[in-house]
Amino acid sequence: MDKKLQAQIVTACQRGDPHAYEQLIRCYQTQVYSLALRMLGNAEDAADVTQETFIRIFRTIDSFRGDASFSTWVYRVTSNLCLDWLRRRKRQVLSSDAPVSWEHETAPREVADNAPNPEDLLAAAELRQEIQSALNELESYHRLALLLRDVQGLSYEEISEILNLPLGTVKSRINRGRKQLKKMLQQKNIL
């Protein structure tokens, strides 16, 4: 999003403009939900964390001074809430065999001529499910850094700012996460 527009929306929210809040939710809900879903591996938990993230953002929006970009701040809140959530269900180990409340699949409602057939969609969903179960087995800090880099597409510097960690630590976590994930995917015969 354009930084100027982003700043305008945030300022409007700080003034208490009700329309600005809805606009802000529309702008950031996908990025928040995407990270939460891949971190938690569960659609219901991801929706809960997304909701909680926005509640926390709006509760503390007055404290946002614009030192970092708003997007970075949103990612920071989301990351912290995801880690808190995982800590709370620490003992509840996700099993790849457990019934999965799978993500909302966005299949087109009106099937176009060149749309993938249902078998392809099913195969793609199954593959994503396998990858998600491999991600779930990673250590949460490695998973978080990996997702921010390779799924959300953030730079190392942005991730360092979000996680409040030195650049070297961020790189090391991402590399370790990738190596672990590669092993998992090889075990599942995906790679």
Binding site: Y21, E22, I25, R26, Q29, T30, Y33, S34, L37, R38, A43, A47, T50, Q51, F54, I55, F58, E103, H104, T106, A124, L127, R128, I131, Q132, L135, L146, D150, V151, Q152, G153, L181
Partner: peptide, 21 residues
């Protein structure tokens, strides 16, 4: 991993967030 990015939120989530906040 690139294919793991979510492009849309589930239907109804936006309304739920708006109501909650």
């Amino acid at each position: 991993l690139q294919d793991m990015a979510v492009r849309e939120v589930p239907p109804g989530l936006e309304g739920r967030i708006v109501k909650a906040v």
